[in-house]
């Protein structure tokens, strides 16, 4: 790249760093959330809820930076696509932060001595691990403008989706006791939030493809499953 508009390039780089490091905030929040789930730690869950302000704050900050860039630098071409993508990514980050909050809010509902179905808990903890790994992968794919790595998120997301379905099957036949059924219902809310985090990671991957190719296509079309994924190129 010829050496020109250095200050502008610095601003763009800083904006991207600020946005993508929002993913690190989500990873930290998810780690605490899963620990709170595993140990039914209500204090930790409260901390997750309080700390979500940091993610929301980052969202507002990046949003304002984007408005300023658009107003003052009139970005075009790849820069414009990058800025548009960062706006989407930041929105996904904010949503994932909210999913951690959603999970943390239901933890107290299970009570201190909730009956626990180990098979279901194992799957939920696996979903959390898988979500964490997808967040790292999404960040790496964005930073490296790596469309293949971004596209692989779909395969990773299938694992979370399958675990979610397994949780559902377990919940359906979890038992007659009201307590365990209530616990299983609550855990389904947790599984659902984790499943959404996986979807948001895929959304970030789609933005990687948009920055690189200029084409926006959903990797997997939820309304037409099995059809029209992005042509590999």
């Amino acid at each position: 790249m010829p050496e020109a508009r250095l200050h502008y390039q610095d601003q763009l780089d800083a904006l991207e760093r600020n946005c993508l490091s929002g993913l690190d905030l989500v990873i930290a929040s998810l780690d605490r959330t899963m620990e709170a789930v595993e140990h039914q730690d209500m204090e930790l869950a409260e901390l997750v809820i309080a700390d979500d302000d940091r993610i929301d704050g980052r969202y507002l900050e990046v949003h304002q930076e984007i408005l300023t860039m658009l107003a003052t630098q009139a970005p075009v071409a790849t820069d414009l696509r990058l800025i548009s993508a960062l706006l989407h990514v930041m929105h996904s980050i904010e949503r994932m932060g909210d999913q951690c909050v959603n999970i943390s809010k239901v933890i107290p509902l299970t009570g201190n001595d909730a009956p626990v179905h180990d098979e279901m808990v194992d799957r939920i903890l696996l979903m959390g691990k898988q979500g964490r790994s997808m967040l790292s992968q999404a960040k790496k794919a964005f930073e490296g403008r790596d469309v293949e790595l971004a596209r692989d998120l779909v395969r990773q997301d299938d694992l979370i989706d399958n675990l979610n379905k397994e949780c559902f099957k377990i919940a359906v036949r979890v038992g007659e006791e009201e307590d365990i059924r209530e616990w299983a219902m609550t855990m389904m809310l947790v599984a659902r939030a984790l499943e959404r985090i996986g979807d948001n990671a895929v959304d970030i991957g789609e933005q990687v493809a948009f920055v690189v190719t200029g084409l926006f296509r959903e990797f997997e079309d939820a309304s037409h499953p099995g059809q029209a994924p992005l042509p590999s190129s």
Partner: peptide, 19 residues
Amino acid sequence: MFTTPSKKETEDYVSGRFG
């Protein structure tokens, strides 16, 4: 031309990276 130009040369020019 201003969102997805085909050529790098165009991209550099429209995004002000010339000079």
